[in-house]
């Protein structure tokens, strides 16, 4: 299988481009996606290729254009709605929660909403408390939505193509700090990655680190340090948060008997707590230690660079947690 080296942002652009070529009902809408070429240059060149009817600049009105996407999806289109960052989806939350997620059920199955909401999620660098939210914890809670968070260019492309073809609303979480990250992306034109399938990013036998999006890279760094200490860590990249790959998690726990969940977001509730619940419920007899979570400190994100780094999970905190569950302090 031939591959091409791509940055994460190029992989996303390539998925949008290919799906827009494949299906004329797919369009891209959002702030600065056209003439400006994308606030993070994800959509660079797409306006020139597809024109203003299909690459649509919006005013700053997330509730308005999220709702427009939903109405358009109910009547035959497949919108890709870009939030400049996921933080701004908060003002469109009612549209996503009450219209996108519930439409099919409250209409008795009559109306699907095949729409993708996408954009960068979680921390960037020193962008302060209102621009650093990890929004998966809000959205994965909602039945009717699917939530994916790729960590590599290959998964970014494959999952986005799957998302655009899905008949349900999909929350697609990117990462500003991953946009320049390079990786090999398969060339085959119909390359997709299925939802609900995680992958083993690093094999190991002593402990499982479960992660997604940007924290996968941090988890892999932690695993290298731990390997030097003689702890052989398995790292799982979930890729898809809803649906969640329970089988992969259980198979790994059956091997390692210990787990740490590493992610961005606050400790109260959320995806990490959901994973811990499933592990204790589905693999109780396999566990040799409580499952620990390494996540943001329980405070709004500070601007100060040093403090921000302490709030966000770093490799050293993941290493500490792995040692703790391995009883090797």
């Amino acid at each position: 299988m031939s591959t091409t080296t791509m940055r994460y942002r190029e992989a996303i652009r390539s998925a949008i481009d290919e799906e827009m070529v494949r299906d004329k009902n797919v369009f891209l809408m959002g702030e600065e996606v056209g003439h400006y070429q994308g606030a993070y240059k994800v959509s660079e060149g797409l306006l020139e290729k597809f024109g203003e009817n299909r690459v649509i600049d919006t005013p700053i009105a997330e509730c308005g254009f999220a709702g427009i996407g939903i109405g358009a999806a109910m009547t035959g289109l497949r919108p890709v709605i870009e939030f400049m960052t996921w933080n701004f989806s908060a003002v469109a939350f009612d549209q996503i929660l009450n219209n996108a997620a519930k439409m099919r059920q409250m209409s008795g199955g009559q109306f699907n909403v095949p729409i993708v909401f996408r954009g960068p999620n979680a921390s960037a660098r020193q962008v302060g408390s209102q621009h650093s939210h990890a929004m998966e914890h809000f959205y994965a809670h909602i039945p009717g939505l699917k939530v994916v968070a790729p960590a590599t260019p290959a998964d970014a492309k494959g999952l986005l193509k799957t998302a655009i073809r899905d008949n349900n609303p999909v929350i697609f979480l990117e990462s500003e700090t991953l946009y320049t990250f390079k990786g090999e992306v398969p060339d085959e034109p119909d390359y997709t990655v299925p939802f609900g399938k995680g992958r083993v990013a690093r094999e190991g036998k002593d402990c499982t680190i479960i992660s997604w999006s940007r924290l996968l890279q941090v988890s892999l760094q932690a695993a290298e340090t731990l390997a030097a200490d003689g702890i052989d860590v398995e790292v799982i990249d979930l890729r898809s948060l809803r649906p969640l790959d329970e089988d992969l998690l259980i198979a790994s726990i059956e091997k390692t008997h210990r787990a740490v969940v590493a992610y961005e977001g606050w400790p109260y509730g959320g995806v990490g707590a959901e994973i811990v619940d499933r592990l204790q419920r589905l693999a109780f007899d396999e566990l040799d230690a409580p499952v620990l979570r390494v996540c943001n400190l329980d405070v709004p994100m500070p601007y100060n660079a040093a403090l921000e780094q302490q709030v966000i999970p770093q490799a050293n905190r993941i290493i500490d947690a792995v040692r703790q569950v391995s009883y090797r302090q």
């Binding site: 509730c63 308005g64 254009f65 999220a66 709702g67 427009i68 996407g69 939903i70 109405g71 358009a72 999806a73 109910m74 009547t75 035959g76 289109l77 009612d94 549209q95 009450n98 219209n99 409250m106 209409s107 109306f111």
Partner: peptide, 21 residues
């Protein structure tokens, strides 16, 4: 196309239906 319970929340959606046409 509904029947919506959040005051005003259906108006962007309705604009989207018109957008699709």
């Amino acid at each position: 196309l509904g029947g919506h319970g959040i005051v005003g929340g259906h108006r962007p959606l309705a604009a989207g239906v018109a957008f699709a046409s």
